[in-house]
Amino acid sequence: MKSGITAQQRELIPAGFIEALLAQGERAGRERELLLGDAAFPFDPLRGCSATQTTSSAAFSRLALALFRVLDDEAGGSMPDAPTPVGTARLLAFSLLGSHNLGAALRRAIEFNRCCRLNRGQSAVNSLTIDEDLREATLSYYLEGSDRAQQRLLCGLAIWMRFCGWLIGQHIDVVSARCAAAAPANVRELRHFFPCPVAFGAADNAVVFSVRHLEAELLRSETDLSRYLREAPYCLVVAPKPSSLSITRRIRELLGDDFRCEMPSFEDLTGMLNMSARTLRRRLEREGTSYQRIKDNARRDLAIALLQRDGATVSEVAERVGFSDPSAFHRSFKKWTGESPGAFRA
């Protein structure tokens, strides 16, 4: 089930991400070549400009950090109230490391935001709530602003989930989200962060995930964090950095991305991982997931990637992700994403 895509190929940045940073820099008065020079992009003598065709994750991160310095705003203009001065995120991140678990870290982050980032006299809805019956946690954030501002705030919550996942060495699966805005005409940005169902027109912006993650200990040191912050723009915006500590990641690697053949059974998986069924169930439960959810998410992610390309029909996508019956694929895809395959592609 393994694919032939190398790790280096996976880290090459789609041109749209680079273009978005350069366009934002231009709007702030910084010429493209100057911004690329700030980020130490190599000069291409054949094209007479900086080389951006095959941008690495490290180069993308340098470019984003250079833009933040130009804007003096680490949020890149996404916060509707005020810029976030350069250095704020670093202070916040280091302040979390002493927390005894992720729940305590998130509550400390909420307090930091209230005391250190919000303008005096301004209020925000920023809370962490727990549903003990469903064993789900909800992280919410709302500030007065336009629909576009609310969509960006929701994307900011997704970025927080990626950072939190890195802190605890787990993948945090957002099972649903809601947005305090009408559904946008172009949902590509939200889809990038949220393959799960998103409800629009809500009273706030929120993400919902397993409460088990809140109980996880923070595994990172100050040295780890210093190293991570240098590549944070890529890991938080483009693709989260997989954790070698996560059993979810190990299973996803074993499954690969070709599901036309039957996936391994749970019993087969225990043998492949060289651990007992009891140990595997306990580790999956600790990460707030199950083998069935991991399989569903693997199929979902591949289906989304295939539907975003031109050429493949919905029936062909269904076959690629392991469904012999297209109608069963339609039902599953709508359950996973909140949309039918046809509506998702439109």
Rank of each mutant, 00 (worst) to 15 (best):
L143G: 01
E132G: 00
E132M: 00
L118R: 08
E132R: 10
L128Y: 01
E136D: 03
E132W: 06
N126T: 07
R135K: 14
L134Q: 09
I110K: 06
A137K: 08
Q122N: 02
S140E: 11
R114E: 00
E132I: 02
G121L: 11
C116L: 14
F112N: 03
L134R: 10
N126H: 05
R135W: 05
R114P: 02
Y141F: 14
V125P: 09
S140D: 06
C115D: 12
E136V: 13
S127V: 14
R117D: 02
Y141C: 15
C115E: 12
V125W: 02
G121H: 12
R114L: 05
E111A: 13
L118K: 06
C116H: 13
N113F: 06
T129F: 11
S127C: 13
C116T: 01
N119I: 07
S140V: 12
C115G: 06
D133W: 11
R135Y: 04
I110E: 02
E111F: 09
R120G: 14
C115P: 02
T138K: 06
L139P: 09
V125I: 10
N126R: 08
R135E: 14
Q122R: 04
T138Y: 07
Y141P: 00
T129Y: 08
R120I: 15
Y141S: 15
Y141M: 14
S123A: 12
L139I: 08
N113T: 05
S123I: 07
L139Y: 15
A124K: 00
N126Y: 04
S127R: 15
D133L: 12
T129E: 14
T138H: 05
L128A: 02
R120E: 08
Y142L: 13
Y142S: 11
I130D: 10
N119T: 07
L143W: 00
R117V: 04
R120K: 12
R135V: 00
R120Y: 04
A137F: 11
T129Q: 14
I110Y: 05
L134E: 05
A124C: 11
Y141K: 12
Q122I: 03
L143V: 02
D133N: 08
T138E: 06
V125Y: 07
C116D: 11
R117F: 07
G121M: 12
L128P: 00
D133I: 15
T129D: 13
S140F: 11
Q122Y: 06
Q122M: 02
E111T: 12
L128V: 05
N113Y: 09
R117W: 09
R114I: 01
D131P: 04
L139D: 00
G121E: 11
V125A: 13
S127I: 12
C116G: 04
S140Y: 10
